[in-house]
Amino acid sequence: MSEQYEVEFIERGDREATFLVRGVTPAFANGVRRAMLADVPTLSIDEVRVVENSSVMFDEQIGLRLGLVPLTTPRDEFSEGETVTLALDVEGPGTAYSGDLVSSDDLVSPAEENVPIIDLKEGQRLEIEADAVMDTGKEHAKHQGGVAVGYRHLQRIEVVGDNEAFEQDDPRIVRGVIEAEGELVPAESFGNDLTNRYEGKEVEVHDVPNAFVFDVETDGSMSVDDLVLAAVDSIGDRADELAAAVQL
């Protein structure tokens, strides 16, 4: 990207963020979204060796539940295909939680401690050893770092006149973020209804070209910053790969 582009945060948290990107094409915006979902690798349990499972669930059901637990994945520490071993040993009565997973690597731990894996009754026991593998969302959705990642056009609101007296205002619903009087306003702040903000005014809504508002949420395996940066890097890497592969 040689042209100018700029990024502005509207809301910024560790796991949730909303930001505006100006000066990118729709194709590039969608490329970033897709890279966040499919191309950023995260660690996730992929193979389970069951030592003892006398719970009411089958081994494979337990395996699925363990796979879905997000594991913290520090950036640039692991490469695709690398594995980390985790172990879990819980005896009933009680519940086995994701927090009971013991990791062999201090950098890797369950991002959520409180996910119930299986309820164990008196005399039941679950003892497993599991390999978490670094892989991408292309391979399995459990490796997706991003959750509900999406973008929409930034919309500009223009007041074009007054409504006629006594005219009933129909609701004008907008979502995301609007640009009004040069300011960025989240639509939630006025109940997503433009008639609340511009009472008795006639307004026009236009998409701002090449400006996109991204909504990014992660499952806890990494921060939003890491996810977005890793996604953009993966696009860059693939472009370099293509340039190297195509020789004229």
Partner: peptide
């Protein structure tokens, strides 16, 4: 049986709640 770990539709982790 047990509460699903993640939301079927969006993949958000809901089991913890």
């Amino acid at each position: 049986m047990m509460v699903p770990v993640r939301c079927f539709t969006c993949g958000n982790v809901v089991g913890e709640h």
